[in-house]
């Protein structure tokens, strides 16, 4: 069993947890993910890794309650355990394999959206430990749902933007990137992690600006080890499995419309289970559509 050692609510629906999982803590690298299962009847849920401490044997995850499983996860307290917690899965970021000298010369800009902030933090922290401080644009819809601001500022040159202009740059991450570009910032690479729609628009912009861009894909998965092919997506006209070939890909080659369409596969079913987890029933009869 994988014991939960710390729980913190970062916003009304985003949670941070430290979980005891020594094998993952020892072997994880930035860019990788893990899979959790809340209990014996639970689904296997892929999550990005935010941080890891090999000495303490703990792994930090950050998740948002978007469906039945994450809602159940949010109910867990310190001392509870996950039934399963397996990883690290997927390939580490390319940056980890680059010679340090080369890495130090690169001008990097990370773009973090929503809970995508967590895996970006893992990369920024790793880079900082190598002596590299990258730029980072962190976007949120509004100031009150912005997470991990202090932590992010400690490991990067942080630019915050909010869609509603309540804090930092007024506008979304694309507006912020364009602004930095207009101010004369030039980057060798952009690494964007967040909702698919955000990554799609970032890629459209960076294509125009001719900045190579890496994205981290989070499609539907089951086993996470290459066995089922549920996470397949088209990259540069080829079928790739996000779990073993990714999750990071060349963003300019990813077929985003198709990847986003595939996310709809179990939408109705998921919604039903979410209502069941939250309200104990999925059918309220209020809308009148069932007559």
């Amino acid at each position: 069993m994988f014991r939960i050692e710390r729980v913190e609510a970062l916003s009304s629906n985003i949670y941070l947890m430290d979980v005891y999982a020594p094998r993952i803590a020892k072997n994880a690298l930035p860019g990788q993910f893990l899979i959790v299962r809340v209990d014996e009847d639970g689904e296997r849920v892929p999550l990005t890794i935010c941080d890891y401490d090999a000495e303490a044997g703990t792994v930090q995850i950050v998740f948002q309650t978007v469906g039945a499983e994450s809602y159940r996860m949010a109910q867990l307290k310190v001392g509870d355990s996950f039934a399963d917690f397996v990883g690290p899965l997927g390939r580490p970021s390319d940056l980890c394999e680059m010679p340090l000298e080369e890495l130090k010369k690169m001008k990097l800009c990370f773009i973090a959206g929503g809970v995508g902030t967590a895996p970006v933090y893992a990369q920024l922290k790793w880079l900082k430990n190598q002596g590299v401080t990258a730029d980072c644009i962190q976007g949120a819809r509004s100031k009150d749902i912005l997470i991990m601001e202090d932590e992010m500022a400690a490991v990067s040159n942080l630019y915050i933007c909010t869609d509603d202009g309540s804090y930092g740059i007024n506008g979304n991450v694309c507006v912020a990137l364009q602004k930095l570009y207009d101010e004369g910032k030039r980057y060798d690479r952009v690494i964007a992690i967040g909702p698919m729609i955000m990554m799609k628009f970032v890629c459209q912009l960076t294509k125009e600006l001719e900045i190579p861009t890496i994205v981290s894909m989070n499609p539907i998965m089951v086993d996470g080890t290459g066995m089922c092919g549920a996470c397949r997506l088209m990259v540069g006209g080829e079928v790739k499995f996000a779990c073993v070939d990714g999750p990071e890909f060349d963003g300019h080659k990813v077929d985003f419309p198709q990847a986003m369409q595939r996310m709809a596969l179990y939408k109705t079913e998921e919604g039903r289970l979410y209502l069941e987890a939250k309200e104990g029933a999925s059918h309220h009869g209020g809308c009148g559509s069932c007559n």
Partner: peptide, 8 residues
Amino acid sequence: DCVIGKST
């Protein structure tokens, strides 16, 4: 929950 090649 131990993926050889990944977890160790």
